[in-house]
Write a protein that binds this DNA or RNA. Structure first.
Lengths: 207, 207
DNA sequence: GACAATATACTACTTTCGTACCATACCAAC
DNA sequence: GTTGGTATGGTACGAAAGTAGTATATTGTC
């Protein structure tokens, strides 16, 4: 398994090198501290896995991936960054990166991630998920508080539908929808549909 | 590392047993197919890691954890289930489980997860994150489309605030808030604040 | 059968939201 | 110094949203 590391912090570079050196199945074939350097290194040396930081001096880590993908698509990319920013993570995922590890991770976590990704799986740091959830306080067991119809309405709210659209979807009048919405807001103590919708998006079954 | 498995599907039990048996550092010390059985097994035999299904015949996996925690709190728990249901995952995370793996995972993923959890880290199946995000289509780079003030307003929308509250928060009049909200909706092509709020919750920086 | 809970539909009313148009002030670019 | 973009505050108005109250049908329980 041939690995390349791209990071502009010498300390990080050093730490990763040491961790990877201890693994029998991993072979560090190159390092880069800047974007341009990284692109030419990756396209030349054909690595299996590349670990890269998001923010470099001349180019973002995602930009490096975009450029290298034009030439070789088999290589796996893992973002190794300090950013728990949701938007950063989203963009990386959208580009199809195979892993996303925070710099606060333990060495064994990095090693696990590299192995998993190399074998075609993905790995996202659990801390990211933690930071993405745990925002809205729990209201209790929904099924206990809401009737099944009210739950359907709440789900529709979470899809961003207005009353007319919900009425159409559930084959009932808009008046009835209003009634249900009022009930939901009262039971869960929300001020308006927007708060209910946000709650629903976090809590309700999507699949 | 002493491990216990709780699952009412014989096949799953069998598969996990085989996978764990191949690992030098893991020792399977017990299995259970029902909740009550599991609770007494766990409290007696003092395992390091317990893998359990969410749905059993007599008791939920989470209920097992609750009962066992009263006696021994050091043990680590990993949910091993077929459910990608958001609500299931949320409840498990809220109870503080250390891992959540889907049954479609590869053996090496399960092994990785057990090792990571044993060492005090967490592990959530990446597929869950995938299913939780990929819902709302991307609108483009927000920073490019919205002004900084509009971004602030959008963020506030994502917190479920109404116009009056946003005005107070940003020290501007409600009229100006309306103006910004209108602009945001127009630029991102949303029908109303609820859709914008849902988008914001998925996309915007929270920390 | 009586009773409670639910789902439905409607009226009436208030509040909030969203848009259109207007106006001022600031700042940076050309 | 004029032009364009942004932030601000305001008026006016129509469309949604939300609440309160009334009414009917259905369902399940005691």
């Amino acid at each position: 398994m041939n690995i390349i590391i791209v990071d502009d912090h010498p300390l990080v570079l050093h730490g990763l090198t040491a961790v990877i050196a201890g693994q029998g199945d991993m072979n560090l074939i190159g390092e880069a501290q800047a974007g341009n350097e990284a692109v030419s290194l990756i396209t030349k040396s054909n690595p299996d896995v590349v670990l890269l930081d998001l923010r470099l001096k001349d180019m973002s880590g995602l930009e490096i991936i975009r450029r290298c993908r034009e030439k070789d698509s088999a290589c796996k990319y893992i973002i190794f960054t300090a950013s728990v920013d949701r938007e950063d993570f989203r963009r990386a995922r959208e580009l199809g990166v195979d892993g996303y590890i925070l710099k606060e991770a333990f060495p064994e976590e990095v090693i696990s991630a590299i192995r998993l990704v190399y074998r075609g799986r993905k790995y996202y740091d659990p801390s990211i998920i933690d930071s993405m959830m745990s925002k809205i306080e729990n209201v209790g067991n929904l099924e206990d508080k809401l009737t099944s119809r009210e739950l359907e309405v709440l789900t529709a709210l979470g899809e961003g539908l207005n009353n007319k659209e919900i009425a159409k979807k559930l084959y009932i009048s808009e008046y009835t929808v209003k009634k249900h919405v009022s009930q939901v807001l009262a039971k869960l103590k929300f001020a308006d549909r927007t708060q209910a919708a946000l709650y629903a998006q976090e809590r309700i079954i999507t699949a």
